[in-house]
Design a protein around this nucleic acid. Structure first.
Lengths: 269, 269
DNA sequence: CTTTTCAAACACAAGACATGTTCGTTACGA
DNA sequence: TCGTAACGAACATGTCTTGTGTTTGAAAAG
């Protein structure tokens, strides 16, 4: 009887479940326990085993997990960044609010450098059709803006895209950045704190972020509350390099205060 | 009565009409007579006036024509290249066969430069997943190959995309080409003849093609029969720069012979 | 001010997509 | 080597998106 109740609850709960939601649920379950079997996941999500297998194939192709016969195990190491495809569906509201605030800070006619990351991708969507010149550092943002001409001018940097992420890195990217100057950079940082400064998950990424900062007059960082006070692997520079930080209400007050102390203007969207 | 016959013929004829087909038909009609009214086009295509208006808006956004109240007029000057969105749906079979032949000429492990154009886009589709390193010079091809990792290595050149076309040009593109060397280039030429050499519609494009040729050991030109013997505006170089030409059966025999005389190997797909 | 053209709103049909089921094939363990 | 479990392909079903046509009110041209 209780079983039935739970079951019907799931059914109702799952009415609005998108396949992206199910993917997140599966990825979370696999990450938490290290591995999971197909029947387990089918029970958890209420979907059939065939659907779970298809999902696992998709997630394996995204590099989220590794298939084995009967289930899947996690590939994510502790402290590593979850793949782009999953992050894109997390904290949607916060990202969207932050992106809207960032877009408001951009004036028409400006030249803008757009970093990689999910929040910056949202900014790209809002910049679509605006009278600005944009050089995005991710394939996704380039694609988003590719049909925005002639109002929006798109400049493509060279580089090698990181798998899954779409972030452009490498010598070609650095050369493109070195050859140009911009009014404003939108930086999507992985970690930001007054004590540890701006940090990125990846060394190549950190090099690109350094070059971004060197090529622009004004640096705007877009980071939801979870990024504040966090420290990632690769050091980019002190937090004072960031002129303006746009974050959301989940940001820790003491960290915000410390950043403001260090000279960064903080806007809570 | 004859009217009815014609009408029913159109109805039958239009059964399989895609909206791309209708777009081509409309663009052709507008180009041929310089301008056309909405009711005219509705009669011609068998679609409603509302659909025609939507089509005209789409085509106007693509730069094919210019709207005016009640109809549209052509924007294409004599001898100018029709826009990408239309070319993409012309001579599909020939393009596909040519692309297949070109893809067969590429060996695994090669580094490949991929020019812009519709035929090269088809080559990109066939290269997807192959164990090659590709640097495409169009946004569309980049997008096509963006999820081909890790088997296929994608390198993105810098540059500014030409509106509609997606072809990357400008100093950033030339710099990217100058910094790298490739085994094979797939050149999509606008005009090719033994007498006039390789020609492009656009000056910037011609500069890029020159740089492409300078950066590669082997140049393969992909051009359907209509391009042979034709001359476009901007000169790229003599036909002898092209080591191999892949074309289709519609190619004029004397032009093929002349190109072979000049040192180009010709493959008819 | 009248007529024509347009665009937004709604309705409808066709196709695409996601999901579940069945069944034959493959891989692992006893 | 055999038996069982897992898998993938093929098909069926329901839902959702997309394209198209119709209607109606608004805007523009004369």
């Amino acid at each position: 009887m209780f079983e039935q109740l739970v079951c019907s609850f799931w059914m109702v709960f799952n009415r609005g479940m998108n396949n992206a939601d199910r993917h997140r649920l599966i990825a979370q379950a696999v990450k938490d326990s290290g591995s999971a079997t197909v029947p387990d996941l089918a029970g958890l999500t209420g979907a059939s085993e065939m659907t779970i297998r298809r999902d696992l194939d998709t997630l394996a192709a995204q590099g989220v997990l590794e298939r084995f016969r009967g289930g899947a195990r996690t590939l994510l190491l502790r402290g590593q960044e979850p793949p782009f495809a999953l992050r894109a569906h997390e904290a949607l509201d916060a990202k969207r609010r932050i992106a809207a605030e960032v877009a408001r800070l951009i004036a028409d006619g400006e030249t803008v450098l757009l970093d990689s990351g999910t929040t910056c991708l949202d900014v790209a969507r809002l910049l679509h059709g605006r009278a600005v010149t944009v050089m995005p550092l991710s394939l996704q943002a380039i694609h988003t803006l590719s049909d925005a001409a002639p109002a929006t001018t798109l400049v493509v940097p060279g580089g090698r895209p990181r798998s899954g992420e779409g972030a452009l890195t490498g010598p070609l990217t650095l050369a493109s950045l070195a050859a140009l100057r911009f009014d404003t950079a939108i930086l999507g940082c992985c970690g930001l704190s007054a004590a540890e400064g701006v940090t990125a998950y990846d060394l190549d990424d950190a090099a690109v972020k350094k070059a971004i900062i060197a090529s622009t007059r004004r640096v705007i960082a877009a980071a939801d509350g979870s990024k504040l006070g966090r420290t990632a692997h690769a050091y980019v520079g002190p937090s004072s390099l960031v002129h303006t930080l746009v974050t959301d209400t989940s940001a820790a007050a003491e960290e915000v205060a410390a950043l403001e102390q260090a000279g960064t203007a903080v806007i809570t969207a």
